[in-house]
């Protein structure tokens, strides 16, 4: 049986003499060659977990091995096996783009000639060849991120860690980075990434661990996670005021009950974000909902159907939304929040 890329047992980190628990007994096994996602809100313990696996955070307890090497006992040996792209730009500002790669190769034991070859290959591969002599501060956010990935993979690490790799990137750069990560996986690179974008975890990861309050609350493939909550289509119905009074939630609850009466195969309706949410299966879902609404005398102002997302899973598991505060935008495939 091959050595797991990452394996942790009871990995734990507390601060302030145990008063603050950042990571609470993590048992994790990441397989060689997979893209593994840690998904969770800010403060869930994702970055602390990456910190412990990459030697910058000293665990309070438990054990962690990368490619069979004890990260806590032999950090300097383990560092040969890891590549890290942190949340912020840590490029060497005193060096140009090419030198950033060249010296990284030197730090990891390459000879001058090997480092030059590795630098040139990486510049080509990551589309940075025409920028080799540019100062790193002149790079755009997307390019700087690409250079950080190029640098982190230059020494062929057993595991590449990406901490919130696309936060702060424009949508185009984000998609470009996804392509880069998929390309790396095609070459056999094991990747562990953290994200609070459920779409990113869904699109990119083979398996996802949902973290909350320092613990893993669910771990499966994205499809498996979604199936675990519901195996249907999530339908969201916005309706106009029926004029019968009550609070918005009461009004929507009435509408949900009326719809459910006419659509008995739909799951129990719920009220989320000023809309009635139903889970349904089969064909012709939207016409059926419209028909039921008309029958019940409801005026539908907006209607959408979508596969369940990891956000749905997160809400089901924790009772909270993934991102704190007001939603920054509509989840994909869902109607506009009112």
């Amino acid at each position: 049986m091959p050595v797991a890329a990452i394996s942790t047992t009871g990995l734990r980190k507390t601060y302030r003499d145990g008063q603050v628990v950042a990571v609470d007994g993590l048992d994790l096994e990441v397989r060689t060659g997979e893209i593994f996602g840690l998904l969770g809100p800010n403060g869930a313990g994702k970055t602390t977990t990456i910190g412990m696996l990459t030697t910058s955070v000293v665990p309070t307890g438990g054990s962690a091995r990368i490619g069979g090497v004890d990260v806590i006992g032999e950090p300097a040996v383990a560092k040969q096996l890891i590549g890290v792209v942190p949340q912020f730009n840590t490029l060497d500002r005193a060096l140009d783009v090419g030198e950033n790669l060249y010296f990284h190769g030197r730090y990891f034991g390459m000879s001058r000639a090997e480092a030059r070859t590795a630098r040139d290959e990486a510049l080509q591969r990551f589309n940075l060849a025409d920028r080799a002599t540019m100062p790193v501060m002149a790079l755009s956010g997307g390019m700087a991120q690409r250079l950080m990935v190029a640098r982190a993979t230059l020494h062929r690490p057993a595991v590449l860690f990406l901490d919130e790799p696309t936060s702060g990137l424009d949508p185009q750069s984000r998609l470009a980075l996804w392509d880069v990560v998929r390309g790396l996986q095609a070459d056999g690179q094991t990747v562990l990434l953290t994200t609070h974008y459920m779409e990113e975890a869904d699109q990119l990861c083979d398996r996802v661990a949902i973290m909350d309050n320092g613990r893993i609350v669910a771990l499966d493939t994205p499809a498996g996670l979604k199936r675990s909550v519901t195996d249907g289509t999530v339908v969201r119905v916005h309706v106009a005021d029926d004029g019968l009074g009550g609070t918005t939630d009461e009004r929507l609850a009435r509408a949900g009950a009326a719809l459910h009466q006419r659509l008995p195969d739909a799951g129990t309706p719920s009220v989320i974000d000023n809309a009635v949410q139903l889970t349904m299966n089969g064909e012709g879902i939207l016409p059926r909902v419209m028909g039921a609404a008309e029958d019940a005398g409801l005026t539908v102002t907006d209607l959408s159907a979508a596969e369940p997302t990891l956000e749905t899973v997160f809400i089901a598991l924790t009772g909270r939304r993934l991102r704190e505060g007001p939603p920054q935008g509509p989840p994909p495939g869902m109607g506009k929040p009112r």
Binding site: P2, V3, G33, G67, V69, V77, R156, A158, D187, G188
Partner: peptide
């Protein structure tokens, strides 16, 4: 700690 890996890594 010599370790041999199948697909990736040194």
């Amino acid at each position: 700690t010599p370790t041999t890996r199948a697909t990736t890594g040194p």
